[in-house]
Amino acid sequence: MRPFEYARAGNVSEAGALAGRFIAGGTNLLDLMKLEVETPEKLVDITRLPLREIEETADGGLRIGALVTNSDLAAEPRIRRDYEVLSRALLAGASGQLRNKATTGGNLLQRTRCSYFYETSQPCNKREPGSGCGAIGGFNRIHAILGTSDKCIATHPSDMAVAMRLLDAVVETQKADGSSREIPVAEFYRLPGETPQIETVLDQGELITAVRLPKPLQGEHRYRKVRDRASYAFALVSVAAVVRMDGGRIADARLAFGGLAHMPWRDAAVEQALVGQEPTMANFDKAADILLAEAKGQGENDFKIPLARRTLKAVLADATKGA
């Protein structure tokens, strides 16, 4: 690990002005610093900031402080009752020890687990812009099939972010100049394009202070994660779903996907194709056709295209079976 300066932020307004890399749970950042994938000159410890509350909002939703741990969030009774898809997604991620450290804000900012990003002897446009992408034509079993570019085919690793995307969560931030703003998760992440090193719309020194959930969604909540081990492994494909039935037909369907792209993936056309339809495998296939119309395999990850279809159909069948 390279040497670095350390500062502890005493209040939210000074955190950005301390001009360093924010560290909270540190479970991803310190891992990457040991490998010298990340080499910050200064760390700003934000763990003493008062951002650990979960409070109800005026519109019937919840505001989750950025420092609420993944464990505490998954176990929070209101999350388990009203946002089950989020609790399920959190519990599907990492291990008990990591969830006890990892925070809500930090989870959103996880870096990809692409092995070329992690291995500094290899080319990676995300780690070292302009050096090339080793995964294209290389070992790419875990890589993206949607929204890729010829510069980067990495996936976003978070389970939590997939549920946040489905729930239309809003990220609250404070910029280094003290001003604040709100960013819907739908607009928070960027596709790799020509600049895969830029992963979110956050500015330098902009601190995530909270994530706000709108009022709860009625319906059946599901989070299905397909991975190489039964526990403690990243998703090959994951599907978050909230489906509401009415009179034997799908009244509302919300779907978000992990493991497929550089960001949590959501496609309004997939959801619209299901609304008003009967829950049949033929209709689920039509939705999968729309989801995967532009899907592109890279060789080793070609299996993700049929796997995404099957996982989507299995989740929809399960979520509509009681109707």
Partner: peptide
Amino acid sequence: CDHGQCGACTMLVNGRRINSCLTLAVM
């Protein structure tokens, strides 16, 4: 592993288990 993958370093901090290899003492 020194990367939070194996759990051999597990300690309790304020009663909760964490990977002690993936956090700075100064924090």
